[in-house]
Every structure is written in structure tokens, then in C-alpha cells.
Amino acid sequence: MCPHVSPDPCGCPQASGDRPLSEKVQQDRPPTKKPAAHLIAGADVSSQPNGSLRWEPGKSWAFIRGLGYRGGSLVCRQPGLYFVYAKVQLGAPGCPTRAATLHGIHKRTPRYPGVLDLLVNKVVYCPQAHGVPWARHSFLGGLVRLETGDEVFTRVQAPELVRAVDGTRSYFGMFMV
């Protein structure tokens, strides 16, 4: 073995006196403060006038960093590739007449006059007899390119079915990758 190279604890060679490579890479890379948000459903998860669900950006472990929040929407301030996600817990003490609803993540942008669907899921519920309590969930997540001013929000066709228990059942967020 070369006298100028000694193995580190994992057996990888390194020059004498040098820090382990993993430590050096972490110290040489500036800490990133990429935009991110995680919102939870509060006591009032009803729809906003624009159709998006209402979220609690300042409760429990919810947070917003480098993004805006307006009318149930997360507002992009820095263009880039984002992972967007939303989970809703749906339930009721009995089955309503409609046995399916849509859950979606949508985008509003100043460059297009309408709402754009990013991810949509059809949730079928109430397979059991009427009058029996039921619960289902829907999770959506995917990568999307966002520009400054784009608004991302989530909708449920029947918002009265969304359940907010403790911030773990229904949530919505995104982060830059």
C-alpha cells in the first residue's frame, strides 16, 4: 500500500489529512433553499370561490418556503421543475346518491385563459350497502414545469366528502427538484 494513502473507515482510499469524500462534497456544495410547501387540511376544507380546496398553511407541520399562497393555490415565484402532490381522505356516514367523485391537481397561468388539468383521479366509493360509513383516499403526484406566476391548486368535485382529521389524512404541496 502507498504510504501517502490511508483507507478511511469504510476502506476507501484517501490522501492523508484529507476529509472523507462525502464530507467534502457536502461542505463544498452550498445549502439549497429551493421553494417548497406542505399544506394540511384544517377544520374548513370547503371550496374557495375559484373551486380550489382551502388549506391551512400555518398549522402544525405545514409550511411555505419560497412560494406564495392565495385563495387555496400555491403560487410559483421561481421557474423550474416541481414535484406536486395532493392526498385527500374522503368519507361519510352513509352513501350519497353519487358514488364517484373527481380529485385533481390543476394549474392557472397568466399565459392561458382557462384552468389546465395536471393530474386527475376518479374516486369510486360506496361499494357496500347504503347507510354504512365509508372512507377512501386519493393520492396524486407528478413532475410539472412551472413558470413565475403559475398557480397550482387541488379540487375535489364533492368537497363536502373531504375529511381533515389531524393533518395526516388530507394534504397538498410541492417542491422544486
Rank of each mutant, 00 (worst) to 15 (best):
C2L: 03
P3T: 15
H4N: 10
V5R: 07
P7S: 03
P7R: 01
G11P: 02
P13G: 13
P13H: 12
P13S: 07
P13A: 08
P13M: 12
Q14G: 08
S16M: 09
P20M: 01
P20N: 05
P20Q: 08
E23M: 13
Q26F: 11
P30N: 13
P31D: 11
T32P: 04
T32C: 03
P35A: 13
A36S: 14
L39T: 15
I40V: 07
A41I: 05
A43N: 00
V45M: 02
V45P: 01
S46P: 14
S47A: 13
S47L: 12
Q48I: 06
P49K: 05
P49C: 06
N50T: 09
N50S: 03
S52G: 10
S52V: 12
L53C: 11
E56R: 05
E56N: 08
P57A: 06
P57T: 15
P57H: 08
W61K: 10
W61M: 05
A62G: 00
R65G: 09
G66D: 07
G68N: 04
G71I: 10
G72R: 08
G72Q: 13
Q78Y: 01
Q78L: 02
L81A: 13
Y85P: 00
K87V: 14
V88E: 02
Q89M: 15
L90I: 11
G91S: 06
A92Q: 02
A92H: 00
G94S: 14
C95H: 02
P96E: 13
R98H: 15
R98W: 15
A99W: 04
T101Y: 02
T101A: 09
T101M: 03
L102Q: 03
H103V: 07
G104W: 10
G104E: 13
I105D: 05
H106K: 06
R108P: 10
T109P: 03
Y112S: 03
P113S: 06
L116D: 11
L116W: 13
D117T: 13
D117N: 14
L118H: 05
L118D: 00
V120D: 05
K122P: 09
V123A: 09
V124D: 01
C126I: 00
P127N: 10
Q128Y: 05
H130D: 14
H130R: 12
G131S: 04
V132M: 03
V132K: 12
V132A: 04
P133K: 11
P133G: 06
P133A: 09
W134I: 11
A135E: 12
H137D: 09
S138V: 10
F139Y: 15
L140T: 14
L140Q: 07
G141D: 01
G142E: 08
G142A: 12
L143S: 03
V144A: 06
V144Q: 02
L146P: 08
E147Q: 08
T148M: 11
G149I: 13
G149V: 07
V156S: 09
V156Y: 06
Q157V: 10
Q157P: 09
Q157T: 14
A158K: 04
A158E: 06
A158Y: 04
A158Q: 07
P159Y: 07
P159G: 08
E160Y: 02
E160D: 01
L161F: 01
V162A: 05
V162Y: 11
V162L: 03
R163C: 10
A164D: 01
V165H: 04
D166A: 01
D166V: 04
G167K: 04
S170V: 07
S170F: 04
F172T: 00
G173W: 05
G173I: 08
G173D: 02
F175E: 09
V177E: 02
